[in-house]
Amino acid sequence: MANRVITYSEAVREAIAQAMEADSNVFMLGEDIGIYGGAFGVSGDLYHRFGAERIRDTPISELGIVGAAVGAALVGMRPIVEIQFSDFTSQAMDQIVNQAAKIHFMLGGELSVPMVLRAPSGSGTGAAAQHSQSLETWFAHIPGLKVVLPSNPRDAKGLLLAAIDDPNPVIVLEHKLLYKTSGPVPEEPFRTPIGVADLVREGKDLVIVATGVMVSRSIAAADQLKEQGIKATIIDPRTLSPLDMSLINDAIAASGRVMLVQEAPKHVGFMAEVAARIAEGPALYSLLAPVKRICGMDIPIPYAPQLEKAAVPQIEDIIAGAVALMREP
């Protein structure tokens, strides 16, 4: 069944179910994840399969929920928190940043927090500024957190199972536009290692580094670029913390041109870190043109469809960026 095709949200659900079947310490808590099945339908029928104890509906209480997950993790449980929209992690930041991320280090290694926090991220649903952000850089900036952004159904399952196994707090930002997309996903449990980038496709002319929904947009862009004779390598870091630069460096050495694509605002975004690491070498010496970034505008996400679309990179923006990069001397 290696070629079985399921959706991204089915892949997430399957990972949770398999982890819960394998380990009674794994449980899920979050808002409306029970009978309702989750705001994006991710938990689906898990409530009926595992019951109210382990698919634990909570009040609207993000700080309390994450704190409870931290406490449960400290004494050996393996909680998976669902925060309904990643924007609402702002309500729980003390527990994420000051508690979960720091406990292992700050307490000298006495304790650890094997917690997974999943949250739907990104724009494209007409939900406006407080339900559409891409906040991955917040978390990636905090030592002690691991941050993953699965960009396809296979990684959604593999990275989540790896995150549940991980003895550290792992933030999994799922893109809400990807939930209904489909792709091949192995049926048996498997782990996609955290901290290993994915070479999505190879092409000799330029390297596109993209995260989240920008990976599939970059693939679509690359298909069209190919018709214009431009062949792109696409790399999906998958994990923002810890960051694997080896594939990126090797690919730049081969083509000499790199374009960094993120949905989040450009200013102090994750791709600024990637650009800085390129600049620190060794890839810098291979560059034939300056590093190019294609990012979200430095504005809150707006509501109107034409405004929202204009606020973050679309396929045509990626194509235009690549064409411009190829024209650089």
């Binding site: 309390g64 704190g67 997950a69 406490g71 449960a72 527990q95």
Partner: peptide, 17 residues
């Protein structure tokens, strides 16, 4: 107040187990 939700989570674990 940082430890109060954590205590609740540890207590939840005791109950679940």
């Amino acid at each position: 107040a940082g430890g109060i939700p954590i205590a609740v989570g540890a207590a939840l674990a005791q109950k679940m187990r």
